[in-house]
Write a protein that binds this DNA or RNA. Structure first.
Length: 880
DNA sequence: ACCGCCGGGTGCC
DNA sequence: ACCGCCGGGTGCC
C-alpha cells in the first residue's frame, strides 16, 4: 500500500535534512579540488610586491599561500600572498597576477608559493610558484600563462634542494621531486600504514595510572594506560609536532614558519580504539578526570572531592599516600590544577556523538553515576533543548548529536553550543566529521574549548584525506588550514614522496592512542578476545527447489542479457535487483518471493507506467529486508529513497548530490534528471510485522536451508545444551518461517528485528542475555537490527542464513557477540547454496574485502567507476 | 624638439 | 628602490 511511503514535496526538502544519523556524505560532485590526482606542471619565478604595507613576515624557504582577491578595488586580478599564519605579506606583481587570476578562478591549477630567498627585503621579494592540476588541464594552464608572456620551467629536480627532503622530516614542498618519487602501490601504502599504528603500540604510552585503591575498583591495564596517557596529554607542555625552539622563536620545520609566540599543543588527541565496550569505559574515565577527578566507578568520592579540593591544594603531601590516583595527578601538576580547573574556568564537558550511540552514553552514565552524586548531565537534544548557553555551561556534561550540532550552527550566531566555552570537547565516532565540507564538520571545528578529544575506531577510512578534519579539530598549527595540511602531509604521503609517511607517522604518534583487539601492553594482549571462526556450510537445493530456482534464473538471465544487448541495464536496475532478490530468496525458502513479481517492465507501457512499475519493484526489493547498497557512499543504505529513474540511494547522499549540483542534478547511476519532489522514501523493513500477517493460505513447508539450520541447531543442543546462538537473516519473513520448526523442536527463542518497538527490543535482548535456566538459546536476528552498541555476548554461535552484499554489514553483525565480555570462542556458520547467486555474492564480497583492505590512500571511485563496477557485478551474479 | 637626455620625484594591488 | 618609471626641464660643439 501507498501509505507506507512518504513522498517529498520540495518544501520539506530542507526540513527533512534534520534527519539524524546521516553518514558523512562524500563529495561526489567533483567541485572539490581533485587533489589526489594532481600532478606538478612546472614552476615559475615571480615577485611579491608591496611588502612594506603589510605586517606578515616570512623566512627564506618558507611556504606562502597565494590567495585570489577578486574584490580588490585597484585590480580585480589581485593575488594576495600570505604567510603560514595567514598574515598578509604582499601581493603578486600585477602582470603575473593577471595571468594567475584566470587559472586560479577557473580552478585549472592550484598555485603554491615558496619564498626561496630575500625574505628580509623591504619592498619586493621573489616567490617560487608550483602549478598543480590534473593532466587534462595542463595545456590550458600553459596556454593561459603563455598569453601573458610566462613560461613554466620544468619541475625542480630533487638534487637541487633535495638533501633536506629525503632526510625524513622537513623540506620545502616546492622541491617535490615528482619524477624521482616512487609511487607506492596500494599494498605498500597499506602495509606502511599498518606499521604506522604498530609502532604506536610499543612506545612510552604503556605507562599505567593506578586507580584509587581505597575504592578497589579494578581498571584493566589498557584502561590505566589510556588514563595515564590522557592525563599527560591534557597537561603536556611539549611543543606540538614539527615545532622546534630556536634562540628566541619557535620554528616549524615543515613550513619553515617561525614566530615568537609559543605554539600551543593540543590538550587532547585521538583515541583510536576499536574495542567496543572498552572505549565506553574509557570515555567515562576521561570525562570525570579533572572536574571530579575520579573514574566513574570512583564517584563514591565525588562529594568528598568537593571538600577535598581546597584542602588538597595546600596539603598535597599529606594526601599523597592516601589516594594514589590523586597523588599521581597532583605530583604532576599542582599549580595547573589550581589555575586551570578552579571553579572560575569552564566547567562543562561537551560530548558529541551520532544519534545511534546517544542512548549508549546515557545508559553508561545512568549505570555508573548514582543519583546522589551531583554530576549534572544535560542531554541537548529534542525540540525543547535549552537555547540558553548559561544553562549548558553550568552542566558537568552536555551530550548532543552531530546533527543537532550542525542544525544549530546553521542558524548562525544563535547556537548555544557555540557560545559556551567548554572545559573539554569530545567527538565520539569522530570519523563522522571526515568530510571537510559537511556542515557537521564545520560546526564541530568551530566549537570552543582547549581540551579536545576524538574517539574513533577508524581514524582513516579511505585515505589520509580523512584525517584532516580530525587534525583540524585538534587545532594543531599549521594544519588547521587545509593548504598546509595538504602541502606538508597529505600530498607527500599520497605521492609517495620520501619522508612523507614518516611525517604522518610522527604526527599520528604524538597525538594518537591506538589499541586494537590485538594490541599488546608489555607483551600481553590488551584484550584477550576469544577466537572467531567463520565456517562456510554449503547447502544443496532439493530437486524441486532447484527446478524453481533454475527456471527463475533462466528467465532472469534472458531478460538481463537482453538489457545488456539493448544497453538498458541501468534503466532496468530495479528489474535486475528484483531478479537477484528472487534468486537470493529462493536460496532460502520458496515462500519468500511470493510477493515479488516476476514480470518485467514491458515495452508497450507508457514512460509514466514504466516508471511506476520500476519504482514499485524497487520498493518491493527494499521492503523485503535486503541489504542493498548506496552507489554514492558505497555502504548499506541508511534511509533509502528511490529516484524517478528507479535507482536507490541513502536520503542524505542523494540530497547532497541534488544540493551540490543544483539546479540540474543528475542521477549518479544513469544521469537522468533528479528532482526532490520525485524522490520516494521507503522504509527499510515493513513496519507491519510480517509474522503477524502470516500467509494463512500457505501451509508451512521446510527448505534445504532450514533443514541445514535445524540440523546444526539440534546437534549444537546435543553437544552443548547451554550454548546460545544467533540466527541471522536479512529477510524478516524468513526469520518468521524459521520460528515454526524452532517451536516444533522445542527451542526457547527470542527475536530482534527492525520492526520492533524499543521496549520490546530491550526485553528481547535482556531475555536472551540472561543466563537463567529456560532462557532462550536462540535469537532470530535481522541483519540490520540494532545499533553498533548492541551487546549479544551470550551467543557464541552465529548462523548467517544468507550473504549480504556488503561484507562489512556481516562483520558488524558478528561483532555484536564477538566483543568484550565474550567468554567463548565464536563460531560463525554461513549457509551458502551451491551453484547459486549466493556463491557469486561471496566472490564479490571477497573482492570488496580486498578492495577495502587496499583502499587506504586510493581515491574514492568516481560515479562512472561505480556504475561500471555495478554492471560488472550484475554480470558476475547472473553468470553472464 | 611631434625628439633624446638629464635628474628629481616617486613607489603594491 | 644602489632599481624602473614618470613627466618636467631642457637643448650644438
Amino acid at each position: 500500500g501507498e501509505r507506507n511511503y512518504s513522498w517529498f514535496s520540495s518544501s520539506d526538502f530542507y526540513s527533512s535534512l534534520g534527519l539524524e544519523d546521516f553518514p558523512s556524505v562524500g563529495d561526489i560532485s567533483g567541485t572539490e579540488e581533485d587533489t589526489e590526482s594532481a600532478i606538478l606542471y612546472g614552476t615559475l619565478r615571480g615577485s611579491v610586491v608591496g611588502l612594506r604595507y603589510y605586517t606578515g613576515i616570512v623566512n627564506n624557504n618558507e611556504m606562502v599561500a597565494l590567495q585570489r582577491e577578486p574584490n580588490n578595488p585597484y585590480d580585480k586580478n589581485a593575488v594576495r600572498v600570505n604567510n603560514v599564519n595567514g598574515d598578509q605579506v604582499g601581493h603578486i606583481k600585477k602582470e603575473l597576477a593577471a595571468a594567475l587570476a584566470g587559472i586560479m578562478d577557473s580552478k585549472l591549477a592550484v598555485v603554491e608559493g615558496v619564498v626561496p630567498y630575500g625574505a628580509k627585503n623591504v619592498f619586493t621579494m621573489p616567490v617560487q610558484m608550483s602549478f598543480w592540476g590534473r593532466e587534462e588541464n595542463r595545456e590550458a594552464v600553459v596556454d593561459q600563462l603563455k598569453k601573458h608572456g610566462f613560461k613554466l620551467a620544468p619541475p625542480l629536480k630533487e638534487s637541487r634542494f633535495g638533501s633536506k627532503w629525503i632526510s625524513g622530516r622537513a623540506g620545502p614542498s616546492y622541491s617535490a621531486p615528482v619524477h624521482a618519487a616512487v609511487q607506492l602501490t596500494t599494498e605498500q601504502l597499506k602495509s606502511e600504514f599498518d606499521k604506522l599504528f604498530e609502532d604506536l603500540k610499543e612506545d612510552d604510552k604503556t605507562c599505567e595510572m593506578e586507580g584509587a585503591e581505597t575504592v578497589g575498583t579494578l581498571l584493566l591495564p589498557h584502561q590505566k594506560q589510556a588514563l595515564a596517557w590522557m592525563v599527560s596529554r591534557e597537561n603536556s607542555n611539549d611543543l606540538p609536532p614539527f615545532w622546534e625552539e630556536r634562540s628566541n622563536f619557535y620554528y616549524n620545520i615543515l613550513t619553515n614558519f617561525a614566530e615568537e609566540k609559543r605554539p600551543e599543543n593540543v590538550r587532547g588527541g585521538i583515541l583510536a580504539d576499536d574495542m567496543g565496550l572498552v572505549i565506553i569505559l574509557n570515555k567515562a574515565v576521561i570525562f570525570f578526570l579533572y572536574r571530579t577527578c575520579v573514574h566513574v566507578s570512583y564517584l563514591v568520592h565525588f562529594n568528598r572531592w568537593k571538600i577535598l579540593y581546597s584542602f588538597l591544594l595546600c596539603r598535597v603531601k599529606r594526601l599523597q599516600g592516601t589516594i594514589r590516583f590523586l597523588n599521581f595527578y597532583f605530583a604532576l601538576n599542582v599549580q595547573s590544577v589550581e589555575k586551570k580547573y578552579s571553579d572560575d574556568g569552564p566547567r562543562a564537558t561537551l560530548i558529541v556523538c551520532p544519534l545511534s550511540v546517544l542512548s549508549n552514553w546515557i545508559d553508561q552514565f545512568e549505570q555508573h553515576i548514582h543519583q546522589d552524586f551531583n554530576v549534572n548531565i544535560y542531554v541537548y537534544y529534542g525540540s525543547d533543548r535549552s537555547k540558553d548557553p548559561s544553562v549548558l555551561s553550568e552542566q558537568d556534561i552536555v551530550l548532543t548529536t552531530y546533527n543537532i550540532l550542525a542544525t544549530d550552527y546553521g542558524m548562525r550566531g544563535d547556537s548555544p553550543l557555540h557560545r559556551v566555552k567548554w572545559l573539554r570537547i569530545v567527538l565520539d565516532e569522530g570519523h563522522t566529521i571526515r568530510n571537510p565540507n559537511a556542515q557537521q564538520t564545520k560546526a564541530a571545528l568551530n566549537l570552543e574549548g582547549h581540551r579536545r578529544w576524538v574517539l574513533t575506531g577508524t581514524p582513516i577510512q579511505n585515505s589520509v584525506k580523512d584525517l584532516w578534519s580530525l587534525i583540524s579539530f585538534l587545532k594543531l598549527k599549521p594544519f588547521t588550514d587545509r593548504e598546509w595540511w595538504h602541502r606538508t602531509i597529505q600530498r607527500p604521503v599520497t605521492m609517495g614522496t620520501a619522508g612523507g609517511l614518516g611525517r604522518l607517522q610522527s604526527l599520528i604518534r604524538s597525538i594518537t592512542l591506538r589499541r586494537t583487539k590485538t594490541s599488546k601492553v608489555k607483551g600481553k594482549p590488551v584484550l584477550e578476545l576469544p577466537e572467531r571462526k567463520v565456517l562456510i556450510q554449503h547447502v544443496t537445493l532439493t530437486e524441486e527447489e532447484r527446478q524453481v530456482y533454475q527456471s527463475v534464473k533462466e528467465e532472469g538471465k534472458a531478460a538481463i542479457s537482453r538489457f545488456f544487448s539493448e544497453g538498458t541495464v541501468l534503466a532496468h536496475y530495479a528489474d535486475i535487483l528484483g531478479v537477484l532478490l528472487r534468486l537470493r530468496q529462493l536460496c532460502c525458502h520458496p515462500h519468500l518471493c511470493v510477493n515479488t513479481s516476476s514480470s518485467f517492465s514491458a515495452d508497450n507501457k507508457t514512460p509514466e507506467e514504466l516508471h511506476e512499475t520500476l519504482v514499485n519493484k524497487m520498493k518491493l526489493v527494499l521492503s523485503s529486508g535486503s541489504d542493498e547498497e548506496c552507489a554514492v557512499c558505497l555502504e548499506s543504505l541508511t534511509v533509502p529513497v528511490i529516484t524517478r529513474c528507479a535507482h536507490v540511494f541513502c536520503k542524505p547522499c542523494i540530497f547532497e548530490v541534488i544540493r551540490s549540483e543544483q539546479p540540474n542534478a543528475k542521477c549518479p547511476l544513469c544521469r537522468n534528471g533528479l528532482r526532490v519532489e520525485h524522490l520516494v522514501e521507503c522504509p527499510l523493513e515493513e513496519e507491519i510485522d510480517s509474522s503477524n500477517g502470516k500467509k494463512s493460505d500457505q501451509e508451512w513447508i521446510s527448505s534445504s536451508k532450514i533443514n541445514a539450520l535445524m540440523h546444526a541447531l539440534i546437534e549444537l543442543r546435543r553437544d552443548s545444551p547451554n550454548a546460545k546462538c544467533l540466527v541471522v537473516s536479512q529477510f524478516t519473513t524468513f526469520l518468521s518461517l524459521i520460528e515454526n520448526p524452532l517451536k516444533e523442536s522445542g527451542f526457547a527463542f527470542t527475536r530482534l528485528d527492525g520492526s520492533m518497538a524499543q521496549k520490546k527490543r530491550v526485553e528481547a535482548i535482556q531475555c536472551f542475555q540472561s543466563s537463567q535456566a529456560g532462557s532462550p538459546t536462540v535469537m532470530l536476528l535481522s541483519l540490520k537490527a540494532g545499533g553498533v552498541g548492541l551487546n549479544l555476548t551470550a551467543a557464541s554461535r552465529v548462523f548467517l542464513m544468507d550473504p549480504a552484499w556488503n561484507p562489512a554489514a556481516e562483520d558488524q553483525c558478528f561483532d555484536r557477540c564477538h566483543r568484550l565480555g565474550q567468554k567463548h570462542d565464536v563460531v560463525i556458520t554461513k549457509f551458502i547454496v551451491k551453484d547459486s547467486v549466493e556463491e557469486n555474492m561471496m566472490k564479490i564480497q571477497n573482492k570488496k574485502r580486498e578492495l577495502a583492505a587496499g583502499a587506504f590512500a586510493t581515491k574514492k571511485p568516481s560515479a562512472s567507476e561505480v556504475k561500471q563496477t555495478k554492471i560488472n557485478e550484475i554480470k558476475a551474479l547472473i553468470d553472464l
